[in-house]
Structure formats: structure tokens, C-alpha cells
């Protein structure tokens, strides 16, 4: 049994290790990919290392390469073993149609990881909230604190770079932080929650908007929560309103239903309204087309 330590390591290290193992024809059940140190002592344990000289070429479809890179960001401890098993089946067992076989248990598992990571990236793009912290010469500086479910900071960073080129920003997370200064992205180690920036005064206006755009006559709390799970609420300034909006909604609708109907006011004198009426001269306007 080969034991490979992967704690703190990523896709590139795994890829080099996998190449080596494939070249030596080590089957998937002959490798143990470990993320927790100490279980097996140090004897015979290999540490995956980016600097290792890969001594074998393995050809895999480009789509698998992208999927594997994404899946590697997942926190599941089983991901390295799964990825190695699929590479083995693609190259050693020559199962060429494997990736297209959506019902295969390994491909299902891979798809599951990839989708979870993609969803997390999407939610990070959606739920990061920047707070303005100052100016550097003529550039505004913004900072956000965010807690992603998976190790996605690097995968999610390019989006923010393209969108917020014209301002300086940092996103702080427990795993890793990313910073943009107008010329390059920089990555630094993760930080504690206490490093999060102070609230931004604009948040009061944002909450006013959130309160007003909500329609109490269409309460659908489950629909909201399936797209915006509670785990994200702590870092969303608007989330503190959710409880009171739900609590008040029934009373607000009852007031609407009990409200006295407003009479129709007469048409004001306005040249434009008059011209509209003239355009449909000759009686009431009728349906165009064959719909009635």
C-alpha cells in the first residue's frame, strides 16, 4: 500500500503524484491519499510535491482535466482517490466512453463534486459584500470577509478582477485571501474573522431597498432559503431584516385586502393623452393577430 500525504496541497501536486503512480502501474486500491497527518506515522509515507519530476506522460481528455481541477477544490477527503481511480480507468483500462457515461458511479461522484464547487463559486460571486475602507490616491479601496464552503478563492478570483478592475479590493477568507491593486492579483494566507472590515454606511440604503422590493403578498420562504441558505446570512447585511419581513407580511396583506377601493379619477388635461386617444380613433382598439 502506497500512502500519499496531501494535507494543504492542491491539484498540481496531486497531478504530479498521479503521473508517477500511473507510470509505476499502481492500481487505485493500492494507494491511500491522506489529508490528516499522523495516522500512519512517517514510515513509507510520501509527500506529494509540485517539484517532483513527473516521469511519465498521461493523456486524458481536456474536459476531464478541467473537471478534475474544479473537483480538487472540494473539501471531501475522498476526492484524490476518486480522481486517481478515474484517471486509471481512462488511461490504464482504456475505458474511452467513461466520461460520457453519466450513470457510472465514479462519474456521478465526480459530477457531484464539480457541481458543488461550481455552485459555491457562483454563490461567492453573488454573496461577497464589499465594504469601502478608504482611498489610495484616486482609487477607492474595498474589503470583504467571506466564508466559502470549499477551497475556491483562486477559482473565483478572476471574476472579481474583471468586474472590479477600476477599484482596489481584498477578499478575506479563512483559507486564503486575494487582493487586487489594479495591476495584479495577489494571494495571501487565510485570516480570522476578526479581520473583517467595519460596516459600510451604504448598507442602510441597501437594507431600505431590500425591505421595499419585497412583496409581502407572495411569501415563499422555502424558495428563498433554497437559493440563499442560512449559512450565508451572517455576512449579508440585508439578512437581518428577513425575520421581521416574514413576521409582518400577513398583517400587511390583510390591510391591503381590507383597504377601501379607490375611485377612478378623471383624466387630466394633457396633450399627450389626447393624442393617444386620437391614434385609436374610430372606436375601441382591437386585437392584432390571431389571438383572442
Amino acid at each position: 500500500m502506497r500512502v500519499v500525504r496531501m494535507e494543504g496541497l492542491g491539484f498540481d501536486e496531486w497531478r504530479n503524484m498521479a503521473r508517477e503512480l500511473l507510470a509505476e502501474a499502481v492500481p487505485p486500491d493500492g494507494v491511500l491519499w491522506m489529508e490528516e497527518p499522523g495516522l500512519f506515522g512517517q514510515n513509507g509515507v510520501e509527500v506529494a510535491d509540485q517539484a517532483r519530476e513527473p516521469n511519465g506522460k498521461v493523456r486524458v481528455p481536456a474536459t476531464f482535466f478541467d473537471q478534475a481541477k474544479t473537483a480538487a477544490a472540494h473539501r471531501s477527503p475522498e476526492r484524490w482517490g476518486l480522481l486517481y481511480r478515474i484517471v486509471w480507468r481512462l488511461s490504464r483500462s482504456e475505458e474511452r466512453g467513461l466520461l460520457g457515461c453519466a450513470t457510472d458511479p465514479d462519474i456521478r461522484a465526480l459530477d457531484h463534486l464539480v457541481r458543488a464547487v461550481r455552485r459555491d463559486i457562483h454563490k461567492m460571486h453573488a454573496f461577497v459584500r464589499f465594504r469601502r475602507v478608504g482611498m489610495r490616491e484616486d482609487r477607492e479601496q474595498y474589503v470583504s470577509w467571506f466564508e466559502p464552503e470549499h477551497r475556491i478563492v483562486r477559482l473565483a478570483a478572476g471574476f472579481f478582477q474583471k468586474r472590479f478592475t477600476g477599484m482596489d479590493w481584498s477578499i478575506l477568507t479563512p483559507d486564503e485571501c486575494v487582493h487586487w491593486d489594479g495591476t495584479r492579483l495577489q494571494f495571501t494566507p487565510g485570516v480570522e474573522r476578526s479581520a473583517a472590515p467595519e460596516p459600510d454606511e451604504l448598507e442602510e440604503l441597501w437594507r431600505a431597498y431590500y425591505r421595499s422590493i419585497f412583496n409581502p403578498a407572495r411569501l415563499k420562504v422555502k424558495a428563498m432559503q433554497s437559493e440563499m441558505p442560512k449559512k450565508y446570512w451572517a455576512n449579508l447585511p440585508e439578512a437581518e431584516l428577513i425575520g421581521e419581513l416574514i413576521a409582518q407580511s400577513r398583517g400587511r396583506v390583510e390591510d391591503m385586502l381590507a383597504a377601501e377601493e379607490r375611485p377612478v379619477k378623471p383624466e387630466p388635461r394633457n396633450a399627450y393623452l389626447k393624442s393617444l386617444r386620437e391614434r385609436t380613433e374610430g372606436g375601441e382598439a382591437t386585437d392584432p393577430g390571431d389571438v383572442s
Binding site: H122, H125, A126, F127, Y210, I213, F214, N215, P216, R218, L219, K220, V221, K222, A223, M224, E227, M228, L236, E238, I242, L245, I246, S249
Partner: peptide
């Protein structure tokens, strides 16, 4: 991107 959701879903 949906940046938030209101309790009306």
C-alpha cells in the same frame, strides 16, 4: 447572478 433573495422567493 442573483445577489440576494427576498422572502417572496
Amino acid at each position: 447572478i442573483c445577489h440576494s433573495y427576498a422572502p417572496d422567493g
